[in-house]
């Protein structure tokens, strides 16, 4: 592409050194004596943070909460919060930076969704075909309750008892049973 000369890097290093900023470091860059800002030029999010910036314990807590909603792309059903893989750790660090800057849960999920698609959400949005996942368990419980209620009542119904006793073919056997139980 467009190689800039090492002088450009030197200027970059000097400007960072003068500014004294402490952006996230990468060991690979440290080894080369390079300092960020290098990386994405595109803005991660096009809108301003929707919430207030966080720090300390609250930042840790929100980072755990939000990253538990993000799927680790290289794992089987694990969230970014639970995965020890390098990619998940990198995603967690990004989420933490965004939360610290005041971005909301929706904004952060949208940021990852822009790159990875809806697959990145551990809980799919409750819309369209996805509604099946949310509604089916409720329906199953309702139908189960209805089935139990109706089936529990049926054997006690008088109709069933009458129909058995009124069968003349069964009468001899019923008589034996009555004698056995002493009724």
């Amino acid at each position: 592409m467009r190689p800039r000369h090492p002088i450009a890097v030197l200027v970059l290093l000097l400007s960072v050194a003068v500014a004294g900023t402490g952006t996230a470091q990468d060991p690979a860059y440290d080894a080369l004596g390079l300092r960020p800002p290098l990386g994405l030029d595109s803005p991660k999010l096009d809108e301003p943070p929707a919430e207030t910036p966080l720090e300390g314990d609250e930042l840790d807590r929100r980072t755990e909460e939000i990253t538990s909603l993000i799927r680790c792309p290289v794992c089987q059903g694990l969230s970014v919060a639970d995965s020890p893989t390098d990619l998940a750790l990198a995603m967690k660090a990004e989420a933490r930076q965004l939360i610290a800057a005041g971005y909301s849960e929706d904004q952060i999920l949208s940021y990852f969704e822009r790159s990875y698609g809806e697959f990145i959400r551990l809980s799919p949005r409750a819309e369209g075909f996805n509604l099946l996942v949310w509604l089916a368990p409720i329906l199953a419980v309702l139908v189960g309750v209805w089935l139990v209620a109706t089936r529990v009542r049926t054997p006690r119904s008088a109709t069933e008892e009458t129909s058995v006793e009124s069968d003349p073919e069964l009468e001899p056997y019923l008589e034996i049973v009555r004698r056995e139980v002493g009724s």
């Binding site: 996230a24 470091q25 860059y29 990386g39 990619l87 990198a90 790159s115």
Partner: peptide, 9 residues
């Protein structure tokens, strides 16, 4: 080099 896998993500 991609520090923090930022570009990869």
């Amino acid at each position: 080099l991609d520090p923090g896998s930022e570009v990869a993500i």
